[in-house]
Computed example of a mutant assay.
Amino acid sequence: MTVHALPPVVDAAVWERRLEALRTREKAATRELDAIAAERRRLPMVRMPDYTLEGEDGPVRLVDVFEGRSQLITYHHMWFAGKEWQCPGCTGFTSQYTRLEFLDAYDARFVVVTQGPIDEALAYKRRVGNRMTWYSTAGSSFGADVGSPPDGGFAVNVFLRDGDTVYRTWHTDGRGTEQLTHTFALIDLLPYGRQEQWQDSPEGWPQSPTYSRWARSEDIAALYGPGADDVGRPPHDGR
């Protein structure tokens, strides 16, 4: 039984024509993204103060977060004091980055920075099975200075190191972070898409309140945290 509306059924020739028309727009969008990336490479930059963050092994200067590399991406994870479960969007977003060694070939590193105290941040990282390296900016103005203040939103920043001097080269927040994730790219390929009410979809397409299909932080912990197996399944309950 069909629960939702379906796309119209046509013959292969009609389908190919419609697909080719869409592909023309897709290729134009790809070229526009190439042009945007080229413009990003031409942005000026801002010299940063000598911040000190907290890492797993204690205080660490921002310049040393690079670990000898010349480029650094920081994801600023939302943090709310006293909460057992932090932002599900940030928790889910950062859970997908399990193999970042490919950045070594590009002389780059990608890490999480959060306003939470380092002990609490590392405990949360373990609880949800996160694989990234985390730093705390709780004792520094660094987060607030780059668009992610205490009790504020998430953000992505990019930095360039020249010797002991660090420069900020790029920043985004909100939906600007979508270009870093494969999740929405995959979901947007599906016939029903994200199924969120704000999206432009044909009549009868399934639509739900925004965020309602997103995994909760508790779900991420069950999939990837202590006790989950190596392929992201909760422990077997014996049934």
Rank of each mutant, 00 (worst) to 15 (best):
L100F: 05
A5C: 09
R61E: 09
V46G: 03
D104F: 04
R25K: 12
R41S: 08
E101I: 02
L43Q: 14
K27S: 03
D64R: 04
V65Q: 09
A81E: 14
T114S: 14
A37F: 08
A35M: 08
A105R: 13
P8V: 04
V111T: 09
W15A: 14
G89N: 08
F93D: 03
T91V: 07
E32S: 07
P44Y: 08
M48G: 01
A35R: 14
T94I: 12
A105P: 00
V112H: 06
R17V: 14
M48Q: 13
A38E: 14
A29Q: 10
E67M: 06
L100K: 06
E67L: 10
A29D: 10
D107A: 06
R17E: 15
Q96F: 05
E39Y: 11
E20I: 00
A13M: 08
T30S: 01
V65M: 11
D64P: 01
P88W: 00
F93T: 06
R17S: 14
T98N: 06
D57T: 10
A13G: 07
S95W: 04
T98L: 02
L33D: 09
R31T: 10
D64E: 14
D11G: 07
W15G: 05
E39M: 13
F80H: 11
D64V: 02
G58T: 02
L53K: 00
W15T: 07
E56Y: 04
L72I: 07
G92S: 10
L6K: 14
A12T: 12
P7Y: 09
S95P: 05
D34Q: 12
G82T: 05
Y51W: 12
D64I: 00
G58C: 04
L33A: 13
F80N: 01
L103F: 12
V46L: 06
H77E: 08
A28D: 10
R69Y: 05
P8D: 11
Y97D: 02
Q71I: 06
I36Q: 09
W15F: 11
M78P: 05
E16T: 11
P44V: 11
F110D: 06
D104I: 04
M45V: 05
M45W: 11
I73F: 10
L19Y: 13
M48L: 12
P59Y: 06
Q115Y: 11
A12W: 03
F80W: 08
L43K: 15
R42M: 13
V113A: 02
Y97H: 08
A35I: 01
E39I: 02
A21F: 10
A21N: 13
G68F: 11
E67R: 14
D57L: 11
P44C: 09
Q96N: 02
D107R: 03
A5H: 14
R41G: 15
A5V: 15
V63N: 03
E39W: 10
V10T: 13
